[in-house]
Design a protein around this nucleic acid. Sequence first.
RNA 1: UCCCGGAUAGCUCAGCGGUAGAGCAAGUGACUGUUAAUCACUGGGUCGCAGGUUCGAUCCCUGCUCCGGGAGCCA
Length: 466
Amino acid sequence: MDVVSIKDALAGKVAEGAKVRTRGWVRTRRDSKAGISFIQVNDGSCLANLQWVVPATLANYQDEVLRLTSGAAVEAIGTLVRSQGQGQAFELQADSVQVYGFVDDPETYPIQPKPHSFEFLREVAHLRPRTNAFGAVTRVRHAIAQAIHRFFDRQGFCWVNTPIITASDCEGAGQMFRVSTLDLMNLPRNDEGKVDFHEDFFGREAYLTVSGQLAVEAYCLALSKVYTFGPTFRAENSNTPRHLAEFWMIEPEIAFADLNADAALAEALLKSVFRDVLERCGEDLAFFDERVQKGVVSRLEGLVDAEFVRIDYGDAIKVLENCGKTFEFPVHWGADLQTEHERYLTEEYARRPVVVMNYPEEIKAFYMRLNEDGRTVAAMDVLAPGIGEIIGGSQREERLDRLDARMRQFGLEPAAYQWYRDLRRYGSVPHAGFGLGFERLVAYVTGMANIRDVIPYPRTPGNAAF
RNA sequence: UCCCGGAUAGCUCAGCGGUAGAGCAAGUGACUGUUAAUCACUGGGUCGCAGGUUCGAUCCCUGCUCCGGGAGCCA
């Protein structure tokens, strides 16, 4: 007999009156003196539960069915029929119920059929996928990942798996986690008394990657259109609702392209993702709209059609200077935009995502291309209402002399970047790319307020328990 | 890391210088093709941890741990 997912059963993909086998975990049980019990069962295939109608005549009714509580793992064979009740179109008239696993102490089972705070659920990260909210987050997260791959695939991009362990300590962004097999209690020392990393696994210092960008640039300058999608690590002591020590990042890189093409790609990618998720995740999005953040669905619908606002950094500064608001951090040309400035631009000025372009060169990374004005670089940030910076990107400096000058300006030794410099020596070409924070995108789409609640097992300072 | 706020039953919270309460959950019973069912009863707490003040601390003070909001770093 076929095993049918609850999603398919409720969607009418199974003929009415068909015998089916369904499985899942109990959400609630209600008993009726009419000689039946109603059991709501969820298998994660969709948000909705399937109602099993279990007659008291089953052999194991007294001993087992009446002992079922939230969380128990069960299987039933029965007939899919139109429901006599109001809440659902179909239900399963059970011929038999098999219990795989009871909840051995129902009083302390953390997941109850009621709303829980997300803070509490973080403490039971292994059980929170059994809630409506985390089931929905998990399905939407998956749908977004698939939508991203589909978008790039359609456009002829290659997914390039850049290394997670990197020996270059110069990827440019933030504090790194060290990777080592040395015995911390007994470190090998060289003549100067310093740790001798020649003895370490890779024969040199190694770290977890903070970005695949430099590595993927090499593939860009051969395959033209590439992207990375993988885990990224930052050992920053960041304690905010939008930072993780381990997160996933998408980094496309396109050859023969300038900053405008980069911004256009970012906008097209985001819109494509929004469109796909709206089409495929209606039930889950409706849940987020109702229970998590009002208006997330109409926000996504609006974004699919609206043009993102593109604004030059210099013009953004003027907007902020003339907006009549007093900011805690004063606005002036040359300063980086603070959170309060970004919020004004996205939430009050534009009321939609804003692409800020061409930042002052001294506040941006060494690899960003110096503009003709000599004081700005071809960098862009995509700022989204409610979540802030969701994408950061740039056109890369493809001219070797300028790149070397910028490295020295930032106190970096060009010799340490030989392979990266080679790309500017052998067939260099204008190219551009950006980094999209995957969890920030999931948070934005779902309306979830804390990034720790859109990744299965969040890693943050002091937190890696699961 | 900095600035605020918080930690009381399995969960969400109220409370008060004299050693604790509600709703939900759980258990039992009643009722019912039920819908986070309803009603009644019952069990359940070293009031975050360690010190201090006090005759007496869950309450006041100090330190620590953890959590939340804001900021910085950024994706």
